[in-house]
């Protein structure tokens, strides 16, 4: 059980917020929680969101975009990372380019994405792809390199062919690190989607919703949207952590 101390600061913040909201008395700067909570209690209704789709609709739109970009990144980055972890040639060939592209923030790709893919779904997926790609790739390379040479040699002396080594040693041996890459990659992708939904011409999604709320001066809706973004982020991170515990506990327990 967690200590009650962990709950103290959140409670104080909420109380402080309410007190501050009362004295500031300007819902555009700081709306009272009593105007935020009703929005959160009606996630399926679009009446509370100025007619721009319910919280659930917008969350679903964001999740679908993130999932698309994230899966695309995983499908490309994992095989590439395995190849780079296994082959010095491929590693030396690609490494400098990757190091060059990696520090560019995903959002710096927005203008180029617009130029290439126009405004719309593909551009957003592209930005998310960039955000998720590098953590997945780098963790996969690390994971493959962390596979002990002895594990591979044991397999070889027991008659494993190259594809057995790949499927029965390299993949399970690197899986925990790859999983960490997926978790980190998803976290970044989730951050990217909010900003990518501020692109012109987007009319759904949690990022869109909070900017739309700003344009109408509805700070309570902004905050409700932020809460939903945060909660979904935590939930997915927890799912990844649960998977890590369920399938890869051997890594932390191994001496």
């Amino acid at each position: 059980m967690r200590s009650p101390l962990t709950l103290l600061l959140p409670v104080l913040l909420i109380v402080g917020w309410e007190v501050a909201a009362y004295f500031i008395d300007n819902p555009f700067i700081l709306p009272s929680l009593t105007t935020v909570i009703p929005i959160l209690l009606h996630p399926f209704s679009s009446e509370y969101t100025l007619g721009s789709g319910s919280l659930v609709d917008n969350a679903a739109a964001s999740l679908f975009r993130v999932a698309s970009g994230f899966l695309l990144a995983a499908v490309i980055a994992i095989p590439l990372g395995i190849g780079m972890g296994r082959s010095h040639f491929l590693h030396d060939f690609l490494d400098s380019t990757i190091e060059l592209l990696r520090p560019i923030p995903p959002l710096a790709w927005v203008p180029l994405a617009l130029a290439w893919f126009k405004i719309g779904f593909v551009s957003i997926v592209f930005i998310i792809f960039i955000g998720a790609f590098f953590p997945i790739l780098l963790n996969t390379i690390d994971g493959v390199k962390s596979v002990k040479k002895t594990w591979i040699e044991v397999a070889e002396t027991l008659g494993a062919r190259e594809r057995d080594v790949l499927s029965k040693v390299i993949l399970p041996g690197s899986a925990p690190t790859v999983w960490t890459g997926l978790r980190v990659g998803f976290g970044i992708a989730w951050m990217c989607v909010v900003a990518a939904e501020w692109l012109p011409g987007i009319s759904r999604g949690l990022g869109y919703l909070i900017l739309y709320a700003y344009n109408f001066g509805q700070t309570n809706l902004i905050i409700a949207g932020m809460v939903v973004i945060g909660v979904i982020g935590i939930l997915i991170d927890q799912i990844f952590r649960a998977g890590e515990k369920r399938w890869f506990s051997w890594r932390s327990l191994e001496r």
């Binding site: 494993a160 040693v169 051997w250």
Partner: peptide, 20 residues
């Protein structure tokens, strides 16, 4: 450090048999 930590003991022992 030659055992596969993600496999149970018996699955470690069957590894070579799987290869065959």
């Amino acid at each position: 450090y030659s055992l596969y930590p993600w496999r149970t003991i018996i699955d470690n022992v069957t590894f070579g048999l799987e290869m065959q």
